[in-house]
Simulated scan of single mutants.
Amino acid sequence: MNSFWENEFVKIAAYFSVVVLCVIVFLAVFELVTKYKNWEEIKKGNLSVAMATGGKIFGIANVFRHSIMQHDSLLSLISWGVFGFILLLIGYFIYEFLTPGFKIDEEIQNDNRAVGFISLAISVGLSYVIGAGIS
């Protein structure tokens, strides 16, 4: 059975499955903390929400990329991925806190593309910092 789990195709499929499941769960968490419904807004063509959501997806995937590169077990990979996600979530709240003049969620929901783009950049940028820490 050990040779089964050591097969590169099996490892990649396991990593892929775990990361996809985690991305779905983490996006559901982001959906809970934002005031808008991501997929409803994207369906309506809200580019700001699409950019912010895309940044979150990229950020989560990038954190898991570094986790996969540095850890051998699925449990370790998941643990570091969850830790990285928590840091991304904290970054989201810090971003909201540092902009007291307006509400990030409201601006993104109103399709303020500048705010959506900055949200994307923050998620991507923080994911590189978190990934470097994991590495």
Rank of each mutant, 00 (worst) to 15 (best):
M1K: 09
M1Q: 09
F4I: 15
F4Y: 12
E6I: 01
F9N: 12
I12R: 08
A14S: 14
A14E: 06
Y15K: 14
Y15E: 06
Y15L: 02
S17I: 12
S17M: 10
V18F: 07
V19S: 15
V20S: 13
L27F: 05
V29L: 09
F30K: 09
E31C: 03
E31F: 00
L32R: 05
L32W: 01
L32S: 06
L32E: 03
L32M: 10
L32A: 03
V33R: 11
V33P: 02
Y36T: 05
K37Q: 02
K37A: 00
W39L: 05
E40I: 00
E41S: 07
I42T: 01
K44L: 04
K44E: 03
N46Y: 01
N46P: 03
L47P: 01
S48G: 13
S48D: 03
V49N: 05
A50W: 05
A52N: 06
A52I: 00
A52V: 00
T53Y: 03
G55A: 06
G55H: 05
I57M: 11
I57D: 07
F58D: 03
F58H: 01
F58E: 00
I60K: 08
A61Q: 10
A61E: 10
A61M: 13
N62S: 11
H66F: 04
S67V: 03
M69T: 07
Q70C: 02
H71V: 11
D72N: 14
D72C: 06
S73H: 07
L74S: 02
L75N: 10
L75I: 14
L77T: 12
L77W: 06
I78T: 14
S79Q: 09
S79A: 14
W80Y: 15
W80S: 10
W80D: 05
G81N: 10
G81Q: 08
F83K: 01
G84I: 07
I86N: 01
I86T: 09
L87I: 11
L87T: 05
L88E: 01
L88R: 04
L89V: 12
Y92L: 05
F93S: 04
F93H: 08
I94V: 13
Y95I: 01
Y95M: 05
E96F: 03
E96W: 02
L98Y: 11
T99Y: 02
F102H: 13
K103N: 14
D105N: 10
D105I: 04
I108R: 07
I108N: 04
Q109L: 01
N112Y: 01
A114L: 05
I118W: 11
S119E: 09
S119I: 09
L120H: 07
A121S: 14
I122L: 13
S123H: 15
V124C: 08
V124I: 15
V124K: 09
V124G: 06
V124A: 14
G125K: 04
L126D: 10
S127I: 15
S127W: 14
V129H: 09
G131L: 11
G131H: 05
G131D: 11
A132E: 02
